[in-house]
């Protein structure tokens, strides 16, 4: 119950932030990536605001014996730079550039342009399923 409540609060805040910051408008996102053309720096402010708040949150983590609503921290521990990481990120960036949508705004946009967002989200889940299929259930 605490997990569900905390998760939905996080999701609602996240979705509101995406919409307020203009990230649910693919034109604004592509405008940010268009540094050689008509550049729109808005997304830099979104990233900056989010990173500053999270940098503070990371400094609080070592002072907590455990998370406020859960038994222990589950944080990424990998530190190796693999071809898989870099290749995956490169592919993701291409998809991001093509339509101006990444996963969060794609899902949040379901209330803004339902049909268009649904196509993106279903295709994204299909892409995730493809990776799962090729790798088995191990990853």
């Amino acid at each position: 119950m605490r997990t569900a409540l905390t998760s939905i609060v996080s999701g609602v805040l996240f979705g509101a932030g995406l919409a307020l910051g203009g990230m649910t408008d693919p034109a604004r996102v592509r405008g940010f990536l268009d540094i050689f053309g008509d550049w729109d720096p808005t997304l830099a402010f979104v990233m900056g605001g989010a990173v500053i708040v999270m940098a503070i949150a990371w400094r609080i983590v070592p002072r907590l014996a455990e998370p406020v609503f859960a038994g222990e921290f589950h944080l990424p521990t990998k530190s190796d730079l693999t071809p898989r990481l870099i290749g995956g990120a490169a592919l993701f960036g291409i998809g991001w550039g093509i339509a101006g949508l990444c996963p969060g705004p794609g899902i949040a946009a379901l209330v803004i342009e339902p049909a268009a967002a649904a196509i993106f989200v279903v295709a994204m889940l299909a892409g995730m399923a493809v990776v799962r299929l090729f790798e088995g259930a191990s990853s």
Partner: peptide
């Protein structure tokens, strides 16, 4: 197309 590429890329990455 974009969604498919984003889905594959984010899982691999």
């Amino acid at each position: 197309i974009a969604g498919l590429v984003v889905g594959i890329g984010t899982r691999l990455g």
